[in-house]
Amino acid sequence: MASEYSLADVLERMYENQLALEAAIMELVLWTEERGELTTGGNVRGALQTLGENAGHIKQGLAKLKKQDRQ
């Protein structure tokens, strides 16, 4: 049963989860900053920046895996 899912498929789902979590956390940051917690908002924005940077690498890695799967 597990063989139905390729590594690229599983990693793509994890990538999509990362994007969803990033969006949800950004909503919380905006809510927090509206209430005057700018330091907390700034700290979380720093973490979100790291998520965004890593998302690019993940997307490139997924593209390479998918290309290998097709060959």
Rank of each mutant, 00 (worst) to 15 (best):
Met1Asn: 05
Ala2Asn: 08
Ala2Arg: 04
Ala2Glu: 10
Ser3Met: 05
Glu4Asp: 15
Glu4Pro: 00
Tyr5Cys: 04
Ser6Leu: 15
Leu7Pro: 00
Asp9Asn: 03
Asp9Tyr: 05
Leu11Arg: 03
Glu12Lys: 01
Glu12Cys: 08
Arg13Asp: 12
Met14Trp: 10
Tyr15Pro: 01
Tyr15Val: 01
Tyr15Gln: 06
Gln18Thr: 14
Gln18Lys: 12
Leu19His: 03
Leu19Ile: 10
Leu19Lys: 12
Ala20Pro: 05
Glu22Thr: 13
Glu22Gln: 14
Glu22Tyr: 04
Ala23Glu: 15
Ala23Ile: 01
Ala23Gly: 02
Ala24Ile: 07
Ala24Trp: 09
Ile25Pro: 00
Ile25Met: 15
Glu27Tyr: 04
Leu30Gly: 03
Trp31Tyr: 11
Thr32Gln: 02
Glu34His: 07
Arg35Ile: 01
Arg35Cys: 02
Glu37Cys: 11
Leu38His: 11
Leu38Phe: 13
Leu38Thr: 09
Thr39Arg: 07
Thr40Lys: 08
Thr40Ser: 09
Gly41Pro: 03
Gly42Cys: 04
Val44Leu: 15
Val44Met: 14
Arg45Thr: 15
Arg45Ile: 15
Arg45Val: 12
Gly46Val: 04
Ala47Gly: 05
Ala47Lys: 09
Leu48Arg: 09
Gln49Phe: 06
Thr50Lys: 12
Thr50Asp: 13
Leu51Glu: 01
Leu51Lys: 11
Leu51Tyr: 15
Gly52Leu: 14
Glu53Pro: 00
Asn54Met: 12
Ala55Trp: 02
His57Pro: 03
Ile58Gln: 02
Ile58Ser: 00
Lys59Gly: 00
Gln60Ser: 14
Gly61Phe: 08
Ala63Tyr: 08
Lys66Leu: 08
Lys67Asp: 06
Lys67Ser: 06
Gln68Ile: 09
Asp69His: 09
Asp69Ile: 07
Asp69Phe: 10
Arg70Gly: 05
Arg70Tyr: 07
Gln71His: 11
